[in-house]
Every structure is written in C-alpha cells, then in structure tokens.
C-alpha cells in the first residue's frame, strides 16, 4: 500500500508575533529579579543542594525510558515491537515469548542500550499499551558499555511511581 502524505494546515503568521516574545522576556525577568532581591524577603537558598537534595522534575520531562510494572509484578509490555520499530537509534531489542496467562505474549528479552538512546520519546508515543514511558531518571552513566545495556529486570518500575507521567500522557492525548 502506498504511503499517504498528510498535509498539515498551520495557522498563518499573525501580526502579533511580538507578543509571545514579550511574555517570554517577562517570565525570564521575573525569575531574575526574584533571585536578585529574594533575600529581602528572607529567602536563603537559591540553588538545590545536589546531591542531598533533588529537584523533582515536572512530568513533561523526558528521562530514560522504563517499563511499567503492574501490581502483579509483571510488565505491561506485550512485545508488539512497535517501539523497536519506532526507535530512531535502534537501541531497543525485543524477543517475544508465550505464556499460558490471559495476555499470552510477553517480552522474554527487552534490552535498551542507554548509550544509544537519545530520549526522544518516540517509543512511548508508539506504545499501544502504555507499557514504556519516559521516567524522570537521568543519572544512568556507567563505567563500561556493558553497564549501559539495561535488561528487562533493570527497566521495570512500579506503576505507582510513574503515575504523574501516565496522568500527564493521558491528559496530552485527551486534548484535541
């Protein structure tokens, strides 16, 4: 079947293009002045004391991709391979297998080579099962290339921990 090209209609440039620029400048200056004169109102810390303190990233942040772990300890992934196909850097490797459970298919192997991953989030977008999402985790450096290969067991994160991101995604997709 031939590929179809969808022509996207973009809004024509308006005369008020300077307005967003001013808004952006306003936000930046507000932060600047708050930090500059914040001590007057008794503010002590102007930075986060890393690593004792951690800045909690907003849910829109794309960290490393992880697999959603359901309450029964199993992954939600059914090894359909769409993320493997969508991945522009081919960092995902999946080999499916069969079980007797109701969802008959699961990934026997699910590897992500974090050295190749570029955090684009296309895997998350391709996933039909909400099984792979971008987490807040970004501290994934390792001493060897072997260490940057994450296996299925390393990638599983309980669903509760990923709730902000899942809620954010659902809100995004519900938007028309």
């Amino acid at each position: 079947m031939a590929a179809r090209v969808v022509k996207v209609v973009r809004p024509a440039p308006t005369t008020k293009q300077w307005l967003p620029i001013l808004i952006g400048l306003g936000v930046a200056s507000a932060h600047f002045f708050r930090n500059l004169f914040g001590f007057i109102r008794g503010r002590q810390d102007f930075t986060v004391n890393f690593p004792e303190q951690r800045f909690v990233q907003p849910p829109a942040m794309r960290g490393m991709p992880v697999l959603v772990q359901m309450a029964n300890g199993k992954e939600r992934c059914v090894a359909c391979g769409l993320c493997e196909w969508a991945c522009p850097t081919s960092c995902i490797t999946i080999f499916p297998a069969e079980t007797a459970a109701e969802v008959e298919r699961f990934p026997e192997v699910f590897d992500i080579d974090m050295a190749r991953c570029m955090f684009c989030g296309l895997c998350e977008e391709a996933c039909p099962e909400e099984a792979i999402v971008m987490s807040r985790q970004v501290e994934i450096s390792s001493y060897s290339r072997r260490g940057s290969l994450w296996r299925k067991q390393d990638l599983l994160v309980p669903e509760a921990e990923l709730k902000p991101r899942l809620d954010y995604l659902r809100a995004q997709y519900a938007r028309k």
């Binding site: 090894a79 359909c80 391979g81 493997e84 196909w85 499916p96 297998a97 069969e98 008959e104 298919r105």
Partner: peptide
C-alpha cells in the same frame, strides 16, 4: 512462527 518476530523486521 507463533510469537517469534514481527513481520516488518
């Protein structure tokens, strides 16, 4: 071929 590989690969 059941659950072996996706055909698009």
């Amino acid at each position: 071929f059941h659950h072996k590989i996706r055909v698009w690969f």
